[in-house]
Every structure is written in C-alpha cells, then in structure tokens.
C-alpha cells in the first residue's frame, strides 16, 4: 500500500490539493479564516501561478527574464477588457458568467503569450544579463503603452472590473497551472528545455531545436503569467499600470530565487511563505515591536540578502516527490 502511494505522485498531489482546498473552505466558512486572510491566501495562490510560470523561463530553460509582470499586465488588461468593456459581465457569479470569465482569462493568457513570443525573439541572440535588461525594457514598454491607451483608462487604470475571481476559481487555476507545468517539465519537451539550460551548444549538436524551445518557454511562461494577471485584476476589481512596473516583477523574481530556481516546489512554497511574511507576519511583528510599518520592506530586503548569502540555491532547490510525475 505504501509503495503504491509512493508510486502515484500525481494522485498524491491531487489529494493534497483537494485536502488543502477542503481545509481552507472549512476554516473560511467556520469564520476562522476571515475575508482578510482569504485575500492573502488568494494573493499567495496568484503568486504561485506567477512564480512557477517565471520558473519555467528562468529555472527550467535557463533564460533570464525580469519583466514578468509585463505579461501579467497584458493578461489583466485583455481579460478585463472582455469582461468589463465588451461583455459587461455582472457580478452575480452565475454559471454563464463564470464560463465567460474563464474564456476571458484564457484570452488574456493568449494575448500575453503573443507578447511573450515577441519578447522571446531577442532571447535567440542574447544571454544572461543582456537578456535580463531587454526583458526589463520590454516590460516597461508594455506599461508605457498601456499608460497611453485611453480606451482602457490610460493612467486612470481599467476600472469597474467585476469581482469574478472567487477563491475556488483561483485555487483551481493554480492547481491546473501547477499540473500542466509539472507535466511539461517532465515531458520530452521539458527535457529539451533543460538541455538548453545546461548546454545549448551540445543540445544543438544532438539535434534539439534550441531556438524553438527558447521561444516556447517564453510563450508558455507568458501565457500563465497572463492568467495570473487576469485573476488579480478580477480579485481587486481594477487593473492599473503602476501595479506592473519592474519592482513588481522583481518581487516575483525574488519568490522564484528564494524558493530555489528550477524547483517548482520551491516556487510554490516561497510564494506562500514570502507573501504571508510580507503582508501579514511582518506588519504584526512590527506593531508588536513598536516600529513603524515603513520598516517592513527593510526587513524583507535584508532577509532576501541573508538567504542569498547563506543559501544561494534557495530554500527548496530540489523538487518534492509528489512534484515529480510517475516514471521519473
């Protein structure tokens, strides 16, 4: 029995997910997790989507993208445009609304994926720091363009987005994202992406189309970032260009590297730990210590430096067993 259990990691992952969902739902309906804590959990989940998708680009394929929130912005604005301006969805949470919302999310993801393909092009010629700075530039250009499109509010932001991101939808989207990325990483395509990371020249020599895989990493990573952006916009009911600047991108990058670059388990864990730390524990701790809230980010950045110095490989550099599919 134990052996069967160990040999069915996908089943285990699903059971863990369902158990976590039921637990959170019970705590929430029992009033132990109030709306505030649920918002934080929702943000944690969205960070899981953003971080794992960035990890595909940076960790698995070994590229270096720092403009991830640019993709999220495209997703947020495309999805928001459809639900708010085109379909004018009500806030009723009915089945048809939810279905249309899912369609809008996917459209947002596709929009982000198209942009991802564009940004992936320079990746064919550039490496490391150079690629980093170009993706950063692209992220800023996306933000500038949104800032200047009056149809989606320009600097005012896209307003009046219906609150369609329920906990259930966000949770399901997160689990689906993780399952797909996990499957992908351990498929032959994922192996090819890892070979690009380890040695692109050798990969080329054994007949792997490295060009294709670099672009695909950006396309898929951007797609899921777009989904994350769409969910965020429908959680806080607006999308604003200033939410998607390079500082926001850095925060996602920090989650990936503290968790352990290349490790999906690390990204998932760090998304929870860091978000809860930053939004919940640190403010509480500071209040207890009698310090002003402004010290929150001082401590946060100090922690980041310390983790990087003493554990540069991140907190969870290797995958947990249930994150590795059967036969691996």
């Amino acid at each position: 029995m134990k052996k069967v259990w160990r040999n069915l990691p996908t089943l285990r992952l699903l059971i863990y997910a369902v158990a976590l969902y039921i637990l959170l739902m019970l705590l929430s309906s029992g009033g132990i997790l109030n709306d505030y804590l649920m918002i934080i959990i929702n943000i944690c989940l969205i960070y899981v989507i953003l971080a794992t998708s960035l990890n595909l680009i940076n960790g698995i394929t070994g590229l270096f993208s720092v403009g991830h929130m640019g993709f999220a912005a495209v997703g947020a604005y495309v999805a928001g445009t459809f639900t708010t301006l085109v379909w004018k969805l009500p806030n009723d949470g009915s089945v048809s609304t939810t279905l249309l919302f899912i369609v809008a999310l996917v459209l947002g993801g596709i929009g982000a994926a198209i942009v991802g393909a564009l940004i992936g092009m320079p990746a064919l010629r550039l490496k490391g720091d150079y690629l980093a700075i170009v993706t950063l530039g692209f992220g800023e250009i996306i933000r500038t363009i949104i800032n200047n499109i009056d149809a989606v509010g320009g600097p005012r932001g896209l307003l009046g987005i219906p609150a369609l991101s329920s906990f259930t939808i966000i949770f399901v989207a997160t689990v689906v994202t993780v399952l797909i990325l996990r499957y992908l990483v351990y498929s032959s395509h994922g192996r090819a992406m890892i070979s690009v990371r380890e040695d692109a020249t050798a990969a080329d020599l054994v007949g792997i189309n490295t060009t294709k895989y670099k672009v695909w990493a950006f396309v898929i990573g951007a797609f899921f970032a777009g989904i994350g952006g769409g969910l965020l916009a429908h959680l806080i009911q607006l999308a604003h260009p200033t939410q998607y600047g390079f500082y926001a991108s850095f925060l996602v990058l920090i989650v990936v590297y503290i968790g352990g670059v290349g490790s999906m388990t690390g990204s998932i864990l760090a998304a929870f730990v860091l978000t809860i730390l930053e939004k919940y524990l640190l403010p509480m701790l500071l209040q207890w210590a009698g310090l002003g809230v402004e010290w929150r980010m001082v401590i946060y950045s100090l922690l980041l430096i310390i983790v990087m110095i003493y554990r540069p490989e991140g907190l969870m550099p290797r995958e947990a067993k249930f994150m590795i599919p059967e036969d691996h």
Partner: peptide, 8 residues
C-alpha cells in the same frame, strides 16, 4: 500606493 495592498 498599490491597489492590491489597499484591498488587503
């Protein structure tokens, strides 16, 4: 100055 932080 971040809407997400404000909502939380």
């Amino acid at each position: 100055s971040d809407p997400t932080e404000g909502a939380a």
